[in-house]
Simulated scan of single mutants.
Amino acid sequence: MRSTVQRSLITSTVFALVTTLPFSVTHAVADPAPDSRHVPLPDQFTTLKTGSRGMEVHNAKKRLKDLGFPPGNLSPTYDPALRMTVWAFQKANGLKPVDRIDAPTWQALLHPRRVRPLVAGGEPERTEIDLRRQLLTAWRGGKPVLVTHISTGARRPYCEKGHCGFAATPLGDYRVGVRVPGWSTGILGSMFYPVYFNGGIAIHGSTLVPRYPASHGCVRVPLHNALDLYRFLQPGVPVYVRRSEAPAERRPKAHGEQRSRIPKARPPKAPHRSHPHSSRPARSTGHRTGRDGGGRR
């Protein structure tokens, strides 16, 4: 018990020192400073994982939020929202995404890389989608303000309830079109605050955002980031879809995982509002139109 209290006090002190230094979101993710990978960590830093509780979890959440990786609430519990936020941060810092905050992740939290834009000379206010790393970055004033884990098109044929197509999120330059508040439910699943940018393809919150591409073509984001992105992605904002040159992550081989069908996202059990036009094709002001007018979840 005494050692646990000591660890928490030391961790709090370290993060207090770090977070009180002058900081800008532009320091979130790109080339590391010299020797930053070799900065020794205190022995008191412990591995955090799902179910962990305490001040260390709270401090990690606060640090991620300050760096532009919103973790949802700042409770002292390692919840699913933090799990996906950690994936995003690890991928953005060149680490393999794992279900824990380990020593390399602590080190990256103390000395993060800067965000590197996918599009050179892109508009100051834009959203970039990296299909290879499965990351979305929202930029405002030329600075990254929100980085999140995503799950894009699974890149394979599908046929569900007479609705067939090829699950893909096409590369290209688009602009935000139709935006739908709240929950929408259609043939291919449910979407939370969908923002259409390419025909029936949208950026939307989902209850199912695995570490690998798994959607019918849409860009799934964790629920806790959906509303912020909806507010940011006003009509006409550019959406750039690219594939970075970073090595692709391998899909996890979870026990009993089925890949014969593209998993559908479902809304929470709490009552929700279905939009009357959720099953209708959404128009886009982008440069291309989606091959699937019914919307791809």
Rank of each mutant, 00 (worst) to 15 (best):
P210Q: 12
A282Q: 14
E245M: 00
D31N: 11
L135P: 05
D43C: 04
G295K: 03
E128I: 13
T50H: 01
Y240C: 12
L131I: 02
P252C: 06
R155T: 08
P222T: 04
S8T: 07
L171H: 06
Q6M: 11
F23K: 02
R155C: 06
F89Y: 04
V176A: 03
L48R: 02
L110M: 15
H224Q: 13
T4A: 13
K269H: 13
L227Y: 15
Y193W: 14
G286A: 12
S36K: 04
Y240I: 07
I187C: 06
V18K: 12
H287L: 15
Q134M: 05
G177V: 10
P40K: 15
D173A: 03
H287A: 15
P252S: 13
V86T: 02
P42W: 06
A88E: 06
N73H: 12
V237L: 15
R261M: 10
L17W: 09
P80Q: 07
V119N: 09
F23G: 06
Y158F: 15
V119G: 09
V39R: 11
R243L: 02
I150A: 09
A30F: 04
H275Y: 07
P112N: 10
I150T: 15
T285C: 08
P222E: 00
G72Y: 05
R243F: 06
N59R: 00
N225V: 15
K49A: 08
K62I: 11
M55T: 06
E125K: 12
P22T: 08
L118S: 10
R156A: 13
R273Y: 12
I187H: 08
